[in-house]
Amino acid sequence: MLKTETPAQDHVLLDQYPTAELVNVLVDDQMNAVDAVRAAAPRIAAAVAAALPRVQAGGRLIYVGAGTSGRLGVLDSVELYPTFSWPHGRAVALLAGGTDAMFVAVEGAEDDLVQGADDLRAVNVMSGDVVLLVAASGATPYVLGALRAARAVGALTIGFANNVDAPVANEADIGVTLDTGTEVISGSTRLKAGTSQKIALNTFSTALMVRLNKVYGNLMVDLKATNAKLVLRAIRLTAFATGVDEAAARAVLEQCDFHVKTAIVALSKQTGVEQARALLEAADGNVRQALAD
């Protein structure tokens, strides 16, 4: 029996716990998710290093999963655009059962090996792409089908699993094992197994974006100001990075479509936005290098 499916022995009377104790047990068990990701950190770092040259050359991130794992992949993919201006077309998420499965479980979809391969080929997977395959069991047929199709074209495959010696991790170019063990509620991998996947995917994609010059210091300087909250964030980040007041920051941001990087360089170098853009382009989007030039 998979460890993630094995009934936990330390909470066999869970249904009789007082509510306060029940909540504490559920919260405390989540800490094991953090420990599992920390143990896998070297593998995540290796995945970032391997993915970097492919995405620098124009490759896409393609997430593949079923159920909770698939939904977490969708979540990570859609957040890259507003956070880092990562193009929608370069963050693709495949979920067993299709878009409807984001909201309603599609029975049997995860068991279809052929469909996983077909769905991946349908998005024209290429050798320059990075395919992230997520499965708590590590043996989900839909995910394995996609993995094998990705490897057939030479794409970089990164497999995330919550069981040791799982096929998804073993067959991928880089396997990341998140050994979260048994769940408080037996087999419910939406608990700490899912939490570990969220942390691991978040860590991978964020580290990758940092390496792609989407961050200056620890400031989110390549965001898309798509709503009022993000417009205010852009203004505050620009003011903080340059030392100007928010009115001055807004004035320059309005000239460059609220692109924080451009505004920071223009204000810091006391130049126009076109010159700031040119400096950033010459520095491959690296704000620190553009300021030094």
Results as ranks from 00 to 15, higher is better:
T189N: 06
L178S: 01
G181Y: 03
L219K: 11
F160S: 11
A290L: 10
Q115R: 13
P7C: 08
D15V: 03
V125H: 13
D15N: 03
Y216N: 04
A45F: 09
V252N: 07
E281K: 12
A150E: 07
F258E: 02
M209R: 00
L144D: 01
L156A: 03
F84V: 02
L291G: 15
Q30K: 14
F258H: 02
A155V: 08
L279G: 14
S85Y: 11
K261E: 04
V78G: 06
L230C: 04
Q289I: 15
V106T: 08
A207G: 01
R250Q: 15
D222Y: 09
S127Y: 00
V27E: 08
A122T: 02
F103Y: 11
L147P: 02
E246F: 01
T262E: 05
D245Q: 12
V143S: 03
K229T: 02
Q30F: 13
G159D: 14
A161I: 00
Q16N: 07
E281I: 13
G67K: 08
A93W: 02
V12F: 13
I158K: 04
L219S: 07
V273Y: 11
A91S: 03
V215F: 14
V231E: 11
L291P: 10
T180P: 00
F103E: 09
A247M: 10
R90L: 08
G59T: 06
A105T: 01
A57I: 01
Q9V: 13
K269A: 15
V184F: 13
A172P: 11
V104D: 07
E21W: 04
V27W: 09
L94N: 05
P167Y: 12
L72R: 15
A276H: 08
F84Q: 02
T6L: 11
V131S: 10
L280P: 06
Q30A: 14
T203S: 12
Y81H: 01
T203L: 13
S85I: 03
W86G: 01
K229Y: 00
I62W: 03
L232K: 10
R121S: 07
V134K: 00
D76M: 04
D293L: 15
V74M: 01
N218D: 12
A169N: 13
D245K: 08
G59C: 08
G108M: 00
V104M: 05
A149F: 00
A39G: 05
V215N: 15
A36G: 10
S196K: 11
G175L: 06
G116Q: 00
L156Y: 03
A136K: 12
P53K: 14
N163E: 09
I62E: 01
L291K: 09
V37L: 13
R60T: 03
A149S: 04
R71L: 11
A152Y: 13
F160C: 14
V184L: 05
W86S: 05
G187M: 05
N24H: 10
L133C: 14
V153D: 14
V48C: 05
V114S: 09
R211Q: 09
G181C: 07
L178A: 10
L201C: 12
Q197K: 07
E5K: 08
V168I: 15
Q9E: 15
S205G: 03
W86C: 06
D111P: 02
K3T: 15
T177K: 13
V265P: 07
